[in-house]
Design a protein around this nucleic acid. Structure first.
Length: 416
DNA sequence: CGTTGTTTATTGTTGA
DNA sequence: TCAACAATAAACAACG
């Protein structure tokens, strides 16, 4: 049973609100909710979703962040207006504003500002995927059998605003990844090909290391031979201090730095939002974000995942992200929203979610109260009924997840 | 000279 | 806790 220490919850909540307000002041905050910014048409040509929604678990598999990220990429988000599609750009979005299907009466309705994560337009949001994944995506997006490094750079900067404004050292990392990772193969340039450098492509032998563009390989993917030593933890195994100067010529010769400056503060400073993504991924499955997984068994798995991830979270659910279902025109499409804060108190209140739009909660007041009292909060997912029945023919089209929905019954999620 | 590609070192993260 | 991996930084050579 996950227990969230409330003082930390309070602190987290305050931090998130400050971040939100800061973003608003700086003009980079809640992105105007128009399709140009919220939709992921930019990845329209990017086929990434597999028909198998389940990723393998364990080492060598995409992280939860990457999985969620992948889902985001794989789902068009024209319906990123969270509730009712009524807000004009710039307007605050509030959860629970749909008067037709209100939240459970025992849930206190609270306005919850929404903050979007838009990788293409927000320079502060670093995509939670590895460089190998970025390379793979760029390669797939190019639709060419081989691409140049500059093409990869161009695609990344065009599609991830973070890298457009980041220190150029990331390019070095990309090049290094290309060189070191044997999943990528260098293709010599022909004489009549003008560009500098060679081409790169995904080695067919290792193509299965990429699941929908997300690199899932780890242990067996590195060029450990061929003189490459980069991934050997020489610094730890030999502790460097114990290594003679002859054994560490670069250190002695160049007097390299001994401390590492983190120039990518985003991940370092926003771990909470990232971790919340994990929960979002689970909730997404529970509530229909990824309807392809909503069979009973998978639902249970999703719930277990949810419980598991929440147990792993030291912080409360400071922010929840999910794909909102849009049942318009019997099409399910999804847009991502980050929701600010909520958690459950330990009062035994039951929150029954009646639609995908009415999602978990609302207990900011309880959060505050608990914060004062220092009591822990417990969250228990009790019962769930399966959300929309999907046409088994739902499928993938140009990398987008669409699902026909003949009769979308209201999903219910009871939270104790 | 800028780009490309390789290599080494260091530090942070993650999973067993 | 530790090993493996990812990310970052830097140096350097080759090339156009």
């Amino acid at each position: 049973m996950p227990v969230f220490p409330m003082p930390r919850a309070k602190r987290f909540k305050v931090d998130r609100l400050e971040m939100y307000l800061e973003d608003q002041v700086q003009g980079s905050g809640p992105t105007p909710l128009d399709d140009t910014l919220t939709s992921l048409h930019w990845l329209q040509d990017f086929s990434i979703l597999s028909s198998d929604p389940e990723w393998p678990s364990g080492p060598g598999c995409p992280s939860s962040q990457e999985q969620l990220f992948l889902r985001r990429l794989g789902n068009d988000s024209p319906s990123s207006l969270a509730v009712g599609d009524t807000a004009a750009p710039g307007m605050a979005q509030y959860l629970g504003s749909d008067s037709t299907v209100g939240p459970h009466p025992r849930i206190q309705e609270q306005p919850i500002p929404l903050v979007e994560v838009v990788y293409k337009t927000d320079p502060k949001v670093k995509p939670p995927c590895s460089h190998a994944s970025l390379i793979c995506m760029a390669m797939q997006a190019s639709k060419q059998p081989k691409v140049t490094v500059s093409t990869i750079f161009k695609w990344i900067t065009e599609n991830f605003c973070y890298y457009k404004h980041a220190e150029p050292s990331w390019k070095n990392s990309i090049r290094q990844t290309l060189s070191r990772n044997k999943c990528f193969r260098k293709v010599p340039k022909q004489k009549d090909e003008p560009s500098k450098g060679g081409f790169w492509q995904i080695d067919s032998e290792y193509a299965d290391m990429f699941v929908n563009g997300i690199f899932k390989g780890r242990t067996r993917t590195l060029r450990r031979n061929n003189g490459f030593q980069g991934y050997q933890d020489t610094a730890r195994t030999s502790a460097n201090e114990d290594v003679s100067p002859e054994q560490k010529p670069l250190l002695s010769k160049n007097n390299r730095r001994t401390t590492r400056s983190t120039k990518t503060p985003l991940l370092a400073t926003k771990p909470d939002s990232m971790r919340v993504d994990i929960l979002a991924a689970a909730l997404e499955e529970v509530l229909g974000g990824d309807c392809s997984t909503l069979e009973d068994s998978d639902l249970n798995a999703a719930l277990r995942s949810l419980e598991c991830e929440m147990e792993g979270m030291q912080e409360p659910i400071g922010e929840l992200g999910r794909w909102w279902g849009d049942v318009m025109n019997q099409q399910l499409s999804y847009g991502y929203m980050d929701l600010c804060v909520t958690t459950m108190d330990g009062t035994g209140n039951v929150a029954e979610l009646q639609t995908p739009q009415h999602y978990l909660y609302q207990h900011q007041d309880h959060l505050n109260e608990s914060s004062v009292s220092g009591e822990g909060a417990e969250v228990k997912v009790d019962t769930v009924t399966v959300p929309p029945t999907l046409d088994p023919g739902f499928g993938l089209s140009e990398g987008f997840f669409t699902a026909t929905c003949d009769h979308p019954p209201p999903p219910t999620l009871t939270v104790l």
